[in-house]
Design a protein around this nucleic acid. Structure first.
Length: 549
RNA sequence: GCGCCCAUGGCUCAACUGGAUAGAGCGCUUCGCUUCGGACGAAGAGGUUGGGGGUUCAAGUCCCUCUGGGCGCACCA
């Protein structure tokens, strides 16, 4: 990348090892800009602009750079702005293909990425949908920078929520439907009934608690039912994940890690862990965190013990450089404690565990709860949107692509760490800053290309018009944007880039005629390159790009 | 009470991690197909970046403080 070349030269000339070379916000400030002169002037005892002049003089003597740079200007208080030659820009355009956007900075590194984590015996809510969508986009972006990724899911298939659903199922004896979706919906209803009975207290509470213990103990009375209903949920999730374009490499289940977790904790008790009031706890408070119970006084493992073991199992199953877990940010403090405990017993894990706490999704009516049933399930949201899109006259396959694209994009366009007020209307929007807008722009490029003939002959291009330049200059940023998104775990950087690229292309499109005329070949090339980058970018977000819609 | 996070036009969000004139979408007011897809484009109104201090060449971004919110703090997941 040209950018790295410039950085290397600046390092050599200034002797600094941290050079900021960024894309200016305004096009009139060049293609790259650096503030080195401003930063270093003081130490050198020089006036920034004066120092900038010295630097520019040195850079101008580097031939390999000057072949692609048309001009270097000093502007404002002392910014150095680089302008690239149009000839070079066009050369990049010609090189854009399916692999454009990929870089190699993380080649050789392995990361295990946990996301999704829906519970069995319930329907996925919007938070789960977010996790699926974010995780899938993020893993694709990491792969684009060279990471080898193992995608894993971790599902709560045991515990009170399961007992509640099974309790109600046994009491109500409902007719069992056929499809996986209907069965999953039935379990959701049973869970809600069980929860209600549990909260209303009296006999139900005791019965459900008892049932819960029996499930853990694999008691014959309930074990078969537990297995069967768990299967319903897993069948349903398989369908749901397929629909979302998600393929896991490995599934972990809560029911598999409890016992071992308890054992592992006890192995370090006393020591890393400590008995307190009959329970086994980890004293996070010694490290500026808070204390948490890992094994209860009833000798059952808590979620903490399960995670404590699960992370160890991950490293054993697939030795890697980094384990990432995504959850809602309400678990931020929880994971700090669990990670600290892991690091105490396994010093080798230091720096290899990362938790990403994404923002909570809040509906207008307030935070959603799967317990009260006051929710729109992730599944329902998908259905609603696709029905809406189908009304526009698309075929089923396209409606599916556009509808799911709309939902995914609405999640991905924002900073993942920020809580968001979720508006269903907006998530299914197909105008403005939306997935369908970008898909539409892609379809438009394909439509133009289909009606013409891009020959790939040498292009004579000079004096590009502002709308053309604006697109070209934005196209060259793409690899940098992807790298940045990977580094910051922020797919929104890619999403917003694609939106702005589409905007710039549409502005160009509305103002200039592409087919026919002297510039036809160049404009077709520009169209092809834009289409390719939109497609590559959408793919990184896990969004499909239909050729017609 | 203690800890973590957040506050940007009417609404939902950006701002390349301290840079140049704080940008978009929705909504509102106008306008544009004798051109290839109008799910589009052009123009306009709308901001003291919650308040107050500070740091520096430069602060929405860093520090302090106040106000207002979210989340978490022992046997749930």
């Amino acid at each position: 990348m040209i950018r790295n070349k410039i950085i290397e030269e600046l390092k050599r000339i200034t002797g600094a090892n941290d050079i900021q070379l960024s894309f200016p916000e305004r096009e009139e400030h060049g293609d790259f800009t650096t503030n080195v002169a401003l930063v270093a002037a003081k130490d050198k005892g020089k006036n920034p602009r004066e120092y900038a002049h010295e630097l520019v003089k040195s850079i101008s003597q580097v031939d390999s750079l000057m072949q692609i740079i048309s001009e270097i200007k000093i502007e404002g208080p002392g910014f150095i702005n680089f302008y690239l030659k149009e000839k070079y820009l066009v050369k990049i355009l010609e090189s854009i293909d399916e692999s454009y956007g990929k870089t190699t900075s993380n080649v050789g590194q392995k990361v295990m990425f946990e996301y999704g984590q829906p519970n069995t015996h319930k329907l996925p809510h919007i938070g789960h949908l977010f996790s699926y969508v974010y995780g899938e986009a993020m893993t694709r972006i990491l792969e684009a920078t060279g990471w080898k990724v193992m995608r894993v899911n971790y599902q709560g298939d045991i515990g009170p929520h399961v007992a509640k659903a099974l309790w109600a199922l046994q009491k109500r004896k409902p007719v069992i439907p056929n499809s996986a979706y209907e069965k999953a919906k039935l379990l959701q209803r049973m869970y809600q009934e069980g929860s209600k009975a549990y909260d209303d207290g009296e006999s139900a509470k005791a019965e459900i608690d008892d049932l819960n213990k029996k499930i853990y103990a694999h008691n014959e009375e309930v074990f078969a039912l537990w297995q069967e209903t768990r299967g319903w949920s897993l069948d349903y999730y398989q369908e749901f994940e397929k629909r979302l374009g998600i393929n896991y490499d490995k599934y972990y289940f809560e029911s598999q890690v409890g016992e071992e977790g308890k054992k592992k904790v006890k192995k370090h008790t006393p020591g890393i862990f400590k008995e307190s009031e009959g329970a086994i706890i980890f004293e996070g408070s010694k490290y500026g965190l808070h204390d948490r119970v890992f094994v209860t006084k009833f000798d059952t493992p808590t979620y903490e013990a399960k995670d404590y073991y699960l992370e160890q199992k991950k490293f054993e199953d697939w030795p890697c450089d980094l384990v990432i877990i995504t959850t809602a940010n309400e678990q931020n403090e929880y994971f700090k404690v669990v990670f600290k405990a892991l690091e105490k017993t396994h010093p080798g894990y230091v720096g290899k565990l990362k938790h990403i706490g994404f923002g909570m999704i809040n509906l207008k009516s307030g935070k959603m709860s799967s317990r009260t049933g006051n929710i729109i399930s992730g599944a329902e949201l998908v259905d609603v949107v696709i029905t809406d899109v189908a009304k526009l006259g698309n075929n089923n396959e396209t409606s599916e692509m556009v509808g799911i694209g709309a939902i995914k994009y609405s999640f991905l366009k924002n900073n993942p760490l920020q809580n968001t007020a979720f508006d269903i209307q907006e998530s299914i929007s197909i105008e403005g800053n939306s997935g369908p807008y970008i898909q539409y722009t892609f379809a438009r490029t394909q439509s133009v290309l289909a009606k013409s003939n891009l020959q790939g002959e040498t292009l004579k291009v000079n004096n590009l018009e502002v709308e053309e330049l604006s697109v070209v200059k934005y196209l060259i940023r793409f690899p940098e944007v992807v790298a940045n998104a990977a580094q910051n775990y922020s797919p929104n950087l890619v999403a917003n880039y694609l939106f702005e690229l589409a905007q710039k292309y549409n502005t160009f499109y509305n103002k200039h005629k592409i087919i026919g005329g002297e510039k036809e070949q160049f404009r077709l090339l520009l169209t092809a390159a834009t289409g390719q980058v939109l497609k590559n970018g959408l793919e990184l977000l896990g969004i499909e790009a239909p050729k017609k819609m």
